[in-house]
Write a protein that binds this DNA or RNA. Structure first.
Lengths: 127, 127
DNA sequence: CAATGATATTCAGAATGTCGAATATGATTA
DNA sequence: TAATCATATTCGACATTCTGAATATCATTG
C-alpha cells in the first residue's frame, strides 16, 4: 500500500526546492526577519515571501510580527534531521557555512549603515 | 546563495512520491524483481516501471537482468537515512512493517501457486 | 489620516509531474 | 522463428509548480 507514505512524500515535496532549503538553513540559527533572509540570499522579497508561505502552510515554520518586521522561526526542528540526512546522501556533508551571525550579517535593513568599521572598534550589540 | 542546495533539492524531489517511497521501502530488504513489487503494492506494472525509471535516472537504484526478470537494488543506502529522518519528522516512526520475507510474499508470479500449505510442512527455499 | 517601510497576495505563462492506455522491447522456450 | 513472459517506453490529458510582475495589506510614524 502506498497511502501511508503520503505524509512523508508531502514533506519531501515541501523541502524539494533549493530556495526553501536555503531559507531553512538560515532559520537554523534562530528566528530571523524576512529582510535578513532577503539580504542573505539576494533574492527578491516577494519570491522569498512565497516560499515562506509554502513552509508555513506545511506547518514547518511560524511567523511573528514585531513592529515593522515579521520574524520567522522553525516549528519542527526535526526537519533539520531530514536536511542533514539529505546533505550526506547528496555528498554535501556540511550544510554550507553561513558567513555570519547577526553581527556579520550584511543586511542593509537590519543594520542601518553605521559607516566603515575601524580596526579595534568595539561594537555593542543589543540582545 | 541557492545553487549549492540544488543537488539536495533534486534528491528530495525524487523521493517526493509515495509510490517511490513504498518501492524503496521494499528494496530495503534487498534486491527484488519488478513482479514482486507489483504484487506487494498492487499497482500496475507499467506504473511501477515508470517510477523505477525515475529512481534509476536519479542514480538511486540499479537494475540487473536474470533470465525473464529484472532485479532492482538500491545503489545509495544513504537514502534510507533520509527516509528514516522523514518518517520521524512526519510522525511515522516505523517505516511500516512489510508483511513478508520472500517466503511470505504473496506474489503470484514469484511463487507459482504451490497449493495450500499444510501445518508443519517444511518449505525449502532456493537461495 | 497620509506617507512610508516591511511583507503578502494575486495573476499568468511556462515548465514539469502524474498516471492511464496502448504499445514496444528483449530474453526465453517450443 | 514464432509464441510467450517480464518489463519498458510512448503518448496524451490533466494537475501542479515555478517564477516574475504588479499590486495589496498592515503596522508605524509624522
Amino acid at each position: 500500500m502506498i497511502k501511508p507514505y503520503q505524509p512523508s512524500a508531502d514533506l519531501f515535496k515541501t523541502l524539494a526546492h533549493p530556495a526553501r532549503l536555503a531559507i531553512l538553513s538560515i532559520l537554523r540559527e534562530g528566528e530571523q526577519c524576512v529582510c535578513h533572509i532577503e539580504a542573505m540570499l539576494k533574492l527578491r522579497q516577494a519570491y522569498i515571501s512565497q516560499h515562506l508561505k509554502v513552509l508555513k502552510d506545511a506547518g514547518i515554520v511560524s511567523d511573528r510580527r514585531d513592529g515593522w518586521n515579521m520574524y520567522y522561526r522553525v516549528l519542527r526542528p526535526e526537519v533539520f534531521g531530514v536536511m542533514d540526512a539529505v546533505f550526506t546522501a547528496a555528498g554535501q556533508p556540511e550544510p554550507l557555512p553561513h558567513a555570519h551571525a547577526r553581527a556579520e550579517c550584511p543586511c542593509p535593513k537590519c543594520h542601518p549603515d553605521p559607516g566603515p568599521v575601524d580596526a579595534g572598534q568595539v561594537i555593542l550589540l543589543s540582545e
